[in-house]
Amino acid sequence: MNTITKNKYFSFQRFMLLLKKEAQFNVKRDLLIVGAMFSLFTLVMTLVFEFDEGNYDSEMLENLHFIAFTVMLFVGGVFISSFSFMELRDKLKSHFYLLTPGSNFEKFLGNLLISLVAYILFMIVTYLTYSWIFNWIVFKLYGLQFSPLNLISEEFLIAINVFVLVHSISFLGSITFKKYPVIFTPIAGFILLTVVSLFNELMEKIVFAKMDLDKHLSNIDFEDFFGQYENLFKFILFYVIPIILWITTYLKLNEKEY
């Protein structure tokens, strides 16, 4: 009976088999997404350099790679994380996925690792290589010098943190919606925010009905208030919420039926 209960949640051997399986069947699609983004960016930049008059300000020269990397990281990341648990959305494939001898935790972790950690690392390495080649060619052809991507800047770390939050949302969407999670996740997010805002308005009208709330609010120094709790807000937003959403994703995977 011991062998039955041990490693019920995690076995390195099983996990590696699952990773291998995921990589074999999904890596082509993920590479296509990344490839498409790099191709589009290259095309746009070629057109800009060819047809623009060449008046680039220092801000653009400095920030181009950071902006391009961030946009690509988010766009590609939303797609790739939304494609997690893809087999569960297909009636003809889902039983294979659910009955593959691996724990739900291993299946969850495998998808998380691929769509978050592996994706971020892959994007950093790929973009650094790309930007190095890009800078070299642009300098040779147009004499322009773009600043390289700075991996230790505060902006870069914030971008990664925000991406982790966005990932956790679209990761949950990938297991919640049977069809088109890329579309339905933002719609659901928008509806949720609208409901929260309406609830907020309603509570304001009920609880503070006899109070001139606007007058009281105008007396509060929000900059000071948020500054005081900035770290706490960041901690909740970048660490607590993603973890809650990932746990919810795991629980939803446990509940998945055919």
Binding site: I4, K8, H95, L98, L99, P101, G102, S103, N104, E106
Partner: peptide, 12 residues
Amino acid sequence: ERNPYFLQEIFY
């Protein structure tokens, strides 16, 4: 519960 040891012994 879809225990992996259960899944190793069943095929559908």
